[in-house]
């Protein structure tokens, strides 16, 4: 038996965390706790991304998802809670149906994933020889339109710009959608 390969150890640690908290999100009925578990799950996923060599994506995941999205989520929770703790019970039948369907899908996906030999991972000897390559600069150059890994392929300047504009539009639209409506009486006063 070989010595422990530490990335595998951390993979199982983080994936266990991520899955456990994802299940916790599913099972919890308190919306704020759900949000809390979700943050943890996402944080663990960010760790998985670091492990897969995508440290920039992981950092972005932390920064945007955890820092931004979830704050918005909780913001929404506070604005929409009519009681102190919002609990909405789901029918037991829904649970059963959901778990049946979900279980079937999970089985299929996992079976499919493990049925491909190339996806089983590399040999230990190869893994020990890995020297991590930083990915920030290639990603940055890719977003600016120049691919350093494969110069023959097109960069991502156009999608990047589209996403930027899209984001701007969405934010304006969201602000418009969410702004407080004036009550009828105040309009009449004007």
């Amino acid at each position: 038996m070989d010595s422990i390969y530490w990335p595998t150890f951390f993979f199982y640690l983080f994936s266990g965390l991520a899955c456990a908290f994802a299940v916790a999100v599913l099972l919890s009925s308190n919306i704020v706790r759900m949000a809390f578990y979700l943050v943890l799950s996402l944080g663990a996923t960010a760790g998985l991304m670091f492990l897969a060599g995508a440290e920039f994506v992981g950092a972005m995941q932390l920064l945007i998802y955890v820092g931004g999205t979830l704050v918005l989520l909780i913001f929404g929770v506070m604005l929409t809670s009519q009681e102190r703790f919002v609990v909405m019970k789901t029918w037991a039948g829904d649970w059963v149906k959901a778990f049946l369907a979900g279980g079937a899908l999970l089985f299929i996906l996992a079976y499919a994933a493990f049925s491909i030999p190339e996806w089983r991972g590399i040999e230990r000897t190869e893994a020990d020889a890995i020297v991590a390559q930083p990915t920030v600069t290639p990603i940055a150059m890719g977003l600016l339109g120049a691919r350093t890994d494969d110069p023959s392929r097109a960069g991502y300047l156009l999608p990047f710009e589209i996403v930027s504009v899209h984001l701007l539009v969405v934010l304006i639209g969201a602000a418009y959608l969410a702004r407080a409506k004036r009550s009828r009486s105040s309009i009449e006063k004007i």
Binding site: S3, T8, F11, V25, L48, F114, R124
Partner: peptide, 24 residues
């Protein structure tokens, strides 16, 4: 289990679990 590197399949399985949790 702990002495061999993981592969895409492991990641995909984790992703599937997250996906199914989300879908459910």
């Amino acid at each position: 289990l702990l002495s061999e590197p993981v592969g895409v399949a492991h990641y995909v399985t984790v992703g599937a679990i997250l996906f199914i949790c989300g879908a459910l």
